[in-house]
Simulated scan of single mutants.
Amino acid sequence: MRYVLLGFLLFERYYTFMFKTQFPEMDQLIKELASALQATLGDRLSGLYLFGSLVGGDFDPKTSDMDLLAMVKKDITEAELANLRQMHETFRRAHPEWVDRIEVAYVGVSAMREFKTGTVKIARISPGEPLHYRDMDIQWLMDWYIVQEQGLVIVGPPAKAFIPHITSQEFIASLKDSLLSWLAMAKEARHKGYQSYIILSMCRSLYAIKFGKQISKFKGAEWAMREYSAWADLIQKAVEWHGSSDKSDNLASQTETVKFVVFALSQLGYRV
């Protein structure tokens, strides 16, 4: 706790945070994490960007994750990885309600320039996974498009200074390529929270492909209930189930979830 607070005080001395979300308590939490990152990485931290539900509009303070991209001057070294693990563990102890709810991708400037054409190494901590090295390739394009278009600057210049320009056409093509994987996930989705995630994600994807614009899951659901009225009841249930911690089997709605995914894919020309 002292380590995190010391970093916060040092960082606040030299930087003025200009960002603002709809949740003041989250603003303070993000400032604390940003300060701890600066204390750990120093001037190697080139930029820090918030994206995901906290920016897009679906954020639930009790269940949602916090998604961040940290741009670093060079790839994270083994020594820095160890220091960042200690920093995240200190932050976790100070904020136990955020255990397994923070995702930070640590990406080198050169790695970000090259991810479209090859596989590069980054470091990432995410729900269910400790901080570790992992590969990044073209499949990450959708994430970085969202940061490019909607990312909130915490530290540094706009994210476009680091992300090679991603067109809306590239985003839509990547989104289409990923959609078939949702059917396999739907067939494994036994509880309401997971089913909700799949249904709402499909609604948002259908909207994005039709209009070339990414919106929140809830706004996507509102649109889909009007556009596909036969599925309105199921989509409304998915909205109500959003963030549910109920892990009991809900096989009846699982069957309907699979049917909805098949329907959504058919709207895009897939035959499954």
Rank of each mutant, 00 (worst) to 15 (best):
I172H: 07
G42E: 15
E222F: 09
F8T: 08
E32T: 12
R101C: 03
G7T: 04
I163L: 01
S196C: 11
L69F: 02
Y207D: 07
L48K: 11
P157S: 12
Y270R: 04
L33M: 14
K219W: 10
E227R: 15
Y197K: 05
F260D: 02
F59K: 00
D67H: 07
P24M: 10
L141E: 04
T117N: 14
W231D: 05
A224Q: 01
L9E: 13
K62G: 04
K219F: 12
Q86C: 06
R204N: 09
I172E: 14
F51G: 04
D65P: 00
I138T: 00
S229Q: 12
S248G: 06
Q139H: 13
G42K: 13
Q214P: 00
I163T: 04
D137L: 01
F11C: 14
A186H: 01
C203Y: 13
Q236C: 09
Q195R: 07
S35T: 13
D249M: 11
K192P: 04
Y14F: 11
D43F: 13
R271V: 01
L251N: 09
F218A: 14
D246W: 02
L41V: 07
D233N: 11
D143Y: 02
Q236H: 14
D60P: 01
S181Q: 12
L45E: 07
G243A: 12
A159K: 03
L10Q: 07
P24I: 06
W182V: 06
M18E: 14
F260N: 03
W144Y: 14
R134D: 00
Q86Y: 07
D43Q: 15
A238N: 07
S229V: 13
V120S: 08
D60W: 03
F263P: 13
E97T: 12
V72Y: 05
G156I: 04
I199Q: 06
M71C: 10
P130R: 00
W98V: 05
V104R: 02
M142R: 14
R204F: 07
V258N: 09
L10I: 03
L131D: 08
K62D: 05
I166C: 04
W231Y: 14
L48F: 09
V72A: 05
L265R: 04
S253M: 07
W140I: 03
T167S: 15
V155L: 15
P96N: 06
V261Q: 04
M202I: 08
C203G: 15
A111Y: 03
A186E: 00
S110I: 07
L6C: 07
P24S: 10
V261S: 06
Q148N: 11
D143G: 06
D249L: 12
V155M: 15
A186D: 00
I138D: 04
V120N: 09
E129C: 02
Y133C: 14
A36F: 02
D137K: 03
E25Q: 06
Q28D: 14
H95E: 07
W241F: 12
E97V: 11
D177V: 09
V239H: 03
K247N: 10
K160P: 06
S201L: 05
K160Q: 10
M26W: 09
D135Q: 10
A34V: 08
Y194R: 13
S245R: 10
K73F: 04
A252Q: 11
W223K: 10
I209G: 05
V272N: 07
R92E: 10
